[in-house]
Design a binder for these strands. Structure first.
Lengths: 175, 175
DNA sequence: CTGTATCCCAGCGGATACTG
DNA sequence: CAGTATCCGCTGGGATACAG
């Protein structure tokens, strides 16, 4: 029934009062965040996704641009395909023999906000240089944001954590 | 000078033509994403940040709610403090002896969009249940979004990757 | 060019035992 | 309650060598 913690001045999220025991939050099955980390929680996975975003498709390019060892890239790509983030597609340039390329699936592309968030947070470290993401239309740099289903901008203090109701998830990816 | 890749139908990001060699993207110093992963790329780090968002502050609570071993939590918390994501603050309940609590710094709180992105991506896996984040004002679930500095919504196809100019980073965290 | 097989090391995370 | 010290297994990632 508690809505606030002992030291309110440090409260970040509010929590709805549906749980007598705050530990129910943690115990409520697997956290969605941990599920994400199981798939894209490794450096190699995100680096390969990054290069796919940048347009890399051939094994050789992905290996060279990520700087990963071939063995690591090979194993991780196979897992990414298994996990449904990438597809291995055959293609042929006329006159050459058939090759394969790795392309992001829709699920893989839906990592876009996560990727932007990672890029932005790492870029606000005081470090400079490197690749920057920008809006192709106006040239302004990209920023991660948080909205609600009704379209409101949501700040961290206006966020509420609660147990999800049964039934399908209400939140799909925004564009 | 290339703006598009060999197989345009699969191009994700466009790239500006400033680089004769596409590998310059990767070689351009450390990727900001990798810098992020060095700090929050472990399961334990993100779990502790998560619990801090949920309002956990005392060592004991953080350990129990994350399910981490004490040793792991201890080491990771120390590192999070070192990395500037958390602060260890003394406090006293009158009549009791001084205790410490871990509170997120502004830098730690700026992981909010990343956290939302991870939660949302894991929740769109077909799995159900668990904690859901919502807008305290209207009750709608939270969605990660991507905007540019001019306030436009940016989709993945309108994104351009380029080498950041010298000088301070233009992109600060949106709210 | 696109991988796979092996071997190796470092780091993450857990179990146990012990301190203030 | 709030940690630290030690030990230990597992996995991520790299090096080398080899194959279709």
């Amino acid at each position: 029934m508690e809505r606030a913690d002992l030291h309110d001045e440090h409260t970040v999220f509010t929590r709805t009062g549906e749980f007598a025991d705050r530990d129910a939050f943690t115990a409520a099955g697997w956290c969605a965040m941990e599920r994400s980390l199981e798939v894209v929680g490794t450096r190699s996975a995100m680096m390969l996704v990054r290069e796919a975003f940048y347009g890399g498709r051939r094994f050789d390019d992905l290996v060279r641009r990520t700087g990963l060892a071939e063995t690591v890239a090979s194993k991780r790509l196979r897992q990414l395909v298994t996990d449904g983030l990438m597809e291995r597609q055959p293609y042929r340039v006329p006159g050459a023999r058939t090759r394969h390329e790795y392309v992001l699936t829709e699920r893989g592309r839906s990592l876009f906000p996560l990727f932007v968030a990672l890029m932005n947070w790492g870029a606000t470290n005081g470090a400079q240089g490197g690749v920057e993401l920008a809006h192709a239309g106006c040239g302004e740099p990209l920023l991660p944001a948080v909205r609600c289903g009704a379209g409101h901008d949501v700040g961290i203090e206006e966020t509420e954590a609660r147990l999800a109701p049964f039934g399908p998830r209400s939140g799909e990816q925004g564009r």
